[in-house]
Deep mutational scan, measured.
Amino acid sequence: VTLFVALYDYEARTEDDLSFHKGEKFQILNSSEGDWWEARSLTTGETGYIPSNYAAPV
């Protein structure tokens, strides 16, 4: 399992994006889409796309 942590807060701009807060942890589901990764929040259980430059490996 690849775990990442949010470096900044992010507010979803589309219904496919995932809103999150700094410090929140994610499981990365798909990182082959370039700058946007499909991720599941370990806090909320929700799935959506996150900007890859807002996350770092745990």
Rank of each mutant, 00 (worst) to 15 (best):
T44Y: 02
I50K: 00
D9Y: 04
E46T: 08
A56I: 12
L42M: 12
S31Y: 13
S41I: 09
F20C: 04
A56Q: 10
G48K: 02
Y10N: 02
F4K: 01
Y49S: 06
V1L: 13
Y54I: 06
F26S: 00
R13F: 08
S52Q: 07
V1F: 14
R13C: 13
Y10L: 03
A55G: 06
F4R: 02
T43Y: 09
A39N: 01
G48I: 03
D9A: 06
G34N: 13
S19K: 04
L7A: 03
Y49E: 01
P57G: 05
L18V: 04
R40N: 05
E11G: 05
F20A: 01
Q27M: 13
G48F: 04
G34T: 12
R13K: 13
D16C: 15
A55Q: 04
P51D: 05
S19N: 06
N30T: 08
E24L: 02
L3P: 05
W37P: 00
L18T: 02
A6M: 06
K25C: 12
G23T: 01
L3E: 08
S31E: 09
I28E: 00
L29S: 05
L7I: 09
G45F: 08
Q27F: 14
V5R: 03
D16M: 15
N30S: 11
S32H: 11
F20I: 05
A55K: 02
E15K: 13
L29Q: 05
V5N: 02
E33F: 12
G45E: 04
D35I: 10
A56L: 08
D17N: 10
N30C: 11
A56D: 06
I50Q: 00
G34C: 10
V58W: 13
E38N: 06
R40T: 14
E46K: 15
E24M: 05
S52Y: 10
T47C: 10
Y49G: 02
D17H: 15
L7R: 03
W37M: 08
R40M: 14
T47K: 10
G48Q: 00
E38T: 11
F20Q: 00
A56P: 03
L42K: 03
T44E: 01
E11D: 10
A56T: 09
E24S: 04
A6K: 00
L3C: 08
V5G: 01
F20S: 02
R40P: 03
D17P: 00
E15Q: 11
E24Q: 08
E24Y: 04
D35H: 09
W36M: 12
P57Y: 06
W36L: 07
N53G: 14
S32L: 13
S52C: 10
A56M: 11
G48Y: 04
P51A: 03
S31L: 13
L29G: 03
V1K: 12
D9E: 05
T44S: 10
T47P: 01
F4W: 15
E11K: 11
E38A: 07
H21Q: 12
L18G: 01
T47Q: 10
T43R: 12
A12S: 11
D17M: 14
F20D: 01
S19Q: 04
G34S: 13
